[in-house]
Amino acid sequence: MKFAVIVFPGSNCDHDAHYAVTQVLGQQSALIWHKDTDLQGADVVILPGGFAHGDYLRTGAMARFSPIMREVQAFAERGGPVIGICNGFQILLEAGLLPGAMLRNRGLKYRCEHVHVRVETTDTPATAGAYKGQVLTIPIGHGEGNYYAPPDLLKRIEDNQQVVLRYTTADGRLDDDANPNGSVNAIASVCNDRRNVVGMMPHPERACEPALGGTDGLVILQSIVKALTTA
């Protein structure tokens, strides 16, 4: 199975995702420069974390104009799995591939720490190997992860069960103190209505090895492999 990890100028989790896919997951992965126009036959596309184009206007705002994004869009339209992590999530929102938008964290500060997220649906490539209600401990690292959708859109997202992960306590309860950034309905991850494009603020690639303090991120990455092999 072949992953494509897109490299934007300012991406900084591209090598982390590439490493997790190749060294931990044992799958193939290609780092693809944003000016390229070929996904090299990838089965799944990852938009990694970082600060594409410096995030100088809005997070993710400029990356969607990169040449490779036309290919990513076409790939998604064909039903191919696209996973956006952190800045990749923000890019997918700006590109209109996912519903909603990101605001600054309500505490106005960058936050890097382990959080607990509850799996809300297993009907996505990112959660196909998890079980509903499973609580995963995965790090976040962002200053703008305060997910927002206007009320009518939010209702549609909830009604369609497009919320993939929600911030909860360790035992899976919703609690405002467990919401690190003020996201509406504690949303940490959403998918599109076709369910093949998923964006998430937590960094699964940072939680794949015991030496780094946890392996819950592997549940997400292995889900992708499972979703593709059983599809």
């Binding site: 500060k109 960058y110 936050r111 890097c112 940072r206 780094l212």
Partner: peptide, 27 residues
Amino acid sequence: AYRQYDHMVQTNTMNLPGLGAGVVRIK
């Protein structure tokens, strides 16, 4: 303070801040 620092990017950090010396593995 260190919650504001990304201390995990590059996925090498073996010792989180506040636990003593900083430790990174060499891939």
